[in-house]
């Protein structure tokens, strides 16, 4: 838990961002059940503190590489909710013009590089983005989100080694939600101290309470400052938990209700709200206003998606190759 409480404004923003993600996904569940949204959909509910905390410390020039559980990262990165929702609807106004869906949200203008649905597959891209910054003398950070399941992939080890070898400005943000789909960490990885494993590649690494947005933001700020100062890649193990199943198809048989309930006591949204109230930085009325504004934003996003046209079928094969004008 972070002890310093110096910026009520920052915490209000963190709370608002987490609540946006929470409410957005709750609406997505409803829309999924009415078949407005199809395909695989992976919910972030429970993990909001990670996206909110990390993205809070980034500048517009920094880059974000994400996974298939990326609604929270995209929202926290500032992608318009309208375009994200339209993408979930498979509409032309979606950020990926309906070609990506829930798992493939992209926004080049906000340096949000998706939306990678092969576990571990985003890490090399993050290393390359950081390499480009190095080659061009830019002081930018590339944040790479991935789950602890990715640490069993070869690409994780190749990329930690390469980024460290070349001292590249990458923040490896490992969201340890304890389960790779249905497989508990201890059942799939011999060493469960994740920061220790990252440190084996001479990368600065430490664990963080990923249920505490302020603690995440503090850690991310420290890490990105150090990266910008030239200290090479950093690794944060963000200890978190998803309250919902892996995807909409997951019957959630591999963990106990007791365990889920225990983690829900540490809900990142309500625990930050309670802490702020106790400090006198937030009232119930503030929460109601915030919730109302967010609901209105979601309503607008849904209305936008409902109205948005479909991409014409004649455009099916566009964007396989770049459209070059001579």
């Amino acid at each position: 838990m972070s002890e310093k409480r110096t910026s009520p404004h920052r915490e209000t923003e963190l709370l608002r961002q987490m609540l946006r993600i929470r409410r957005f996904e709750e609406r997505c569940v409803e829309l999924y059940s009415t078949e407005k949204i199809r395909g695989f959909m992976h919910l972030y509910i429970g993990e909001e503190a990670v996206a909110a905390g990390v993205c809070h410390v980034l500048t517009a020039d920094d880059a974000v590489v994400s996974t298939y559980r990326e609604h929270g990262h995209a929202l926290a990165r500032g992608l318009p909710m309208t375009e994200i929702m339209a993408e979930m609807y498979g509409r032309a106004a979606g950020c990926s013009r309906g070609r990506g869906g829930s798992m493939h949200i992209f926004d080049a203008s906000r340096r949000f590089y998706g939306g990678n649905a092969v576990v571990g597959g985003g890490l090399p891209i993050a290393v390359g983005l950081a390499l480009a910054d190095r080659c061009q003398g830019r002081s930018r950070v590339t944040v790479c989100f991935f789950g602890e399941g990715a640490m069993a992939e070869g690409e994780f080890h190749e990329c930690l080694n390469l980024a460290s070898l070349w001292r590249l400005p990458v923040l490896f943000a490992c969201e340890n939600n304890r389960y790779a789909m249905g497989t508990a960490l201890a059942r799939s990885q011999a060493e469960t101290d994740l920061a220790l494993r990252a440190a084996a590649y001479d990368v600065v690494a430490w664990p963080v309470d990923g249920m505490d947005a302020a603690a995440v933001a503090d850690a991310a700020a420290r890490a990105t400052e150090s990266i910008r100062a030239g200290a090479g890649p950093h690794f944060l193990e963000l200890r978190t938990y998803r309250f919902r199943a892996h995807s909409m198809y997951d019957p959630d048989r591999y963990r106990t209700k007791t365990e889920i309930e225990e983690w829900k006591h540490r809900d990142p949204v309500s625990s930050l709200a309670e802490r702020m109230k106790a400090a006198g930085d937030l009232t119930d009325d503030d929460v109601r206003v915030m919730d109302k504004e967010i609901t209105e934003e979601i309503d607008r996003a849904v209305a936008f998606a409902e109205r948005a046209p479909l991409e014409p079928v004649e455009d099916l094969t566009r964007f396989v190759y770049s459209e070059v004008t001579s």
Binding site: P124, I125, V127, G128, A132, T142
Partner: peptide, 18 residues
């Protein structure tokens, strides 16, 4: 290093980065 996936993917990222 002998890390085909990492350095090919880093090529992709570097291309994205200009």
């Amino acid at each position: 290093p002998l890390s085909e996936s990492a350095f090919v993917g880093a090529g992709i990222g570097a291309a994205l980065g200009g």
